[in-house]
């Protein structure tokens, strides 16, 4: 081969351990370590127990929403209604807490999320409506319902309402443990169960899946129901964490959830995405927020910077993949 004709292949090294490509995982670990290192050296308040605990708690809402969102995105859909479900589930739980035992009120909150997800899924699957349109409509409908239920914030008097949001398991908040458990279950669901694999396959090629005798509609409905359930749980946890439920909470939460999935490498056209990388995406997002807060960056500038950082992370991912 002459020197003139040689065209050197340009590839980034990949990390393969025991036959598994861990490049993405390693990339996230590196990114997160870098964030933490920068934060710890530039801000005195970062490595304090108070800040770390609050970081772990902040991950929970966006984490739960992202997992549900991932399941929907894998089918090739999108769920814009999750922010509204957070508000509805929270306000209903807080409202019912006055008359019902708190666990029951919370269960009703989660159930409301499931019900909304079921409706979204049914509209998308049974009537073949575009997911964007369906969930855009339910975004406003459910937000409206939250205000119909109560125009003003509700703060339950019973201090037991705060238990869920404040309890600790050793050094880790209970709600963070719950979120990690949901991610673990989600990971097993998507990689190890027929239903989970079917959901991923549907996003890749629904017709092939249908011809393989798999009920495509039922799995699509299931995906939106899972997203609704996650959003309902997130709403209940958020209300319990801050002690007060507001009908206006959760605006634009869906965008963070989508961003976390995309940072984690999920394809918005479906069929590709990973639970672990999405958790990485969640961590990155929450760290960015936390850092900008600690630096006292003004909130509008925070939005600008956050957007730019997200684009940068996604670009790095893309370049990495296309050279693979």
């Amino acid at each position: 081969m002459s020197a003139e004709s040689a065209r050197a292949p340009r590839r980034l090294p990949r990390l393969v351990v025991g036959g598994r490509d861990l490049t993405v995982e390693a990339g996230f670990t590196l990114l997160i370590v870098a964030f933490v290192a920068v934060a710890a050296t530039t801000s005195d308040s970062f490595l304090t127990p108070v800040n770390l605990t609050s970081l772990l708690k902040q991950m929970v809402t966006v984490g739960l929403l992202s997992l549900g969102m991932l399941v929907v995105i894998l089918t090739g859909g999108i769920d814009l209604s999750v922010g509204s479900i957070v508000a509805f589930a929270g306000i209903v739980t807080a409202g019912l807490a006055a008359d019902l035992p708190i666990p029951v009120a919370m269960a009703v909150g989660v159930a409301s999320g499931i019900a909304f997800g079921l409706v979204n899924g049914t509209l998308v699957a049974r009537f073949a409506l575009a997911p964007f349109v369906v969930t855009l409509a339910s975004l406003t409908t459910i937000r409206g319902l939250a205000f119909v239920y109560s125009e003003v914030p509700i703060a339950p008097a019973d201090p037991a309402f705060l238990d869920l949001g404040t309890a600790m398991v050793g050094p880790v908040p209970l709600i963070t443990v719950i979120m990690l458990a949901v991610f673990a279950v989600g990971g097993v669901f998507l990689t190890r169960t027929p239903a989970g694999r079917s959901i991923v396959a549907i996003g890749g090629n629904a017709e092939t899946v249908r011809l393989a005798g798999i009920n495509v509609r039922r799995h699509v409905v299931a995906a939106y129901t899972i997203s609704g359930a996650c959003a309902g749980l997130a709403g209940v946890i958020l209300a319990s964490r801050v002690g007060i439920a507001q009908p206006s909470v959760g605006v634009a939460f869906e965008l963070d959830a989508i961003a976390a999935c995309v940072i984690g490498g999920a394809s918005l056209s479906g069929g590709r995405g990973s639970v672990r990388a999405t958790l990485g995406g969640v961590a990155v997002l929450v760290l960015i927020n936390n850092l900008l807060n600690l630096y006292g960056v003004q909130s509008f500038w925070q939005q600008v910077l956050k957007g730019l950082i997200i684009i940068a992370v996604i670009l790095v991912q893309r370049v990495n993949r296309s050279r693979g």
Binding site: G204, I214, G271
Partner: peptide, 23 residues
Amino acid sequence: RTGLVLGMTVRDNMSLTTWHSTS
């Protein structure tokens, strides 16, 4: 268009028809 889910692994594609029956 109708035979494969191109982005999925060969293993997933081959077992697509038996996921539910052999779990």
